[in-house]
Amino acid sequence: MRDFTDVGVEVRGGTLAVRHWPGAPGAGTVLAVHGIASNGLSWAAVAEALDGVEVIAPDLRGRGRSGDVTGESSMAAHADDLLAVLDHVGVEQAVLTGHSMGGFVGCVAAQRDPHRYRHLVLVDGGLGFPVPADMDIDQVLHAVIGPAMAKLDMEFADRAAYHAFWAAHPAFAGLGGEVVRAYLDRDLVGAEPHLRSACRAAAIREDAEDELRNPAVFAAIHHLRVPAEMLWAERGLRDEPTGLYPPEVIEAAAPTTVATHFVPGVNHYSILLGAAGAATVAGHLRAAVACG
């Protein structure tokens, strides 16, 4: 396992928790942004595969150990927080990557502050798809992320019970090991037998509204001012045969300025948490770091 430190970064509304894997001098930096109901340790397997490269992975406001950070949550708010993280760690320019909702954060951040990001790698996220205007955002979230939303209303007697909850998720079949256990444990707060998810429901709802219904967020991927690429998983959020982004959507909607790469044999979660997916993502990030 790589050495790491956990640091706190002051942002509007509180202290952002950040996992920091130091790198070799001059080897470059990756700033990694997680998904809507996740935390920074979703990037741990990728960080392990990027040994030697500095990796910085915050828990976004309202998630993980940043669950107590107050105030509005939006793609723009997260982009502001990312700048605070870079300034705190003393990094002038990084390769930016985002998974799922983190891809939308990445697009907004790279569009707004291109001088701080040398390359953007989107991982199964960042390309918008509209949802019905008359559909309640909770309905949308339950339909799209399912158990990740259901967990917000649940309590767990111990960590093993929470691990078992996710082990039953079809997209987590075959995933395990210390990396996954640490990622799940970081999402728990409270004390046994009343453990619950650290995710703040209001932050998830605010982000979902912004991610799924804000035209400016949709447009960000089409107006990037840094080199960008998108990796898209073959399979879906529940390990469905068709991924979050079907091939026809990639072909029709992805801008020609963003290179797209199909990643076979992985789903929306295992593209980061599985060994094969993490190695593929790390390979693209290492190439992006080397390009500068």
Rank of each mutant, 00 (worst) to 15 (best):
G67F: 12
G62V: 00
L16G: 07
L16H: 05
G177K: 10
G146T: 14
H99R: 07
P246D: 01
V217H: 02
D87F: 05
F4S: 14
E54K: 07
F262I: 05
R286I: 08
G98K: 05
A45T: 12
R65K: 13
A278R: 04
H163T: 11
D51W: 06
H115W: 02
G64D: 13
W166R: 06
V53S: 08
C291N: 07
V46S: 12
M1T: 02
A84Q: 14
G98I: 03
A161R: 04
G128P: 10
R186F: 05
D185G: 09
A279F: 00
Y183F: 15
G90W: 11
D187E: 04
H20Y: 06
A32M: 06
G28T: 10
A164N: 09
D207P: 00
A143I: 08
L41E: 07
V180N: 00
V263K: 02
E251D: 15
R225K: 11
Y269I: 14
R181I: 04
H115Q: 14
A202H: 13
L41A: 13
A45C: 01
A191V: 15
G146D: 14
A168L: 08
G98H: 01
V179I: 15
G52T: 07
Y245K: 02
Q111T: 00
V89Y: 07
L152H: 06
D113M: 08
T97M: 12
R159K: 15
L31H: 11
F129I: 11
R118V: 05
P193W: 04
A27M: 01
L285N: 09
V289G: 05
V9S: 00
H284K: 11
L195C: 10
R19V: 10
E229F: 07
K151C: 05
G106Y: 06
R186S: 12
V85G: 00
G177R: 12
L212R: 09
L237D: 01
L82Y: 01
G125R: 04
P25E: 08
A173Y: 06
Y117G: 06
Q93G: 07
A173M: 11
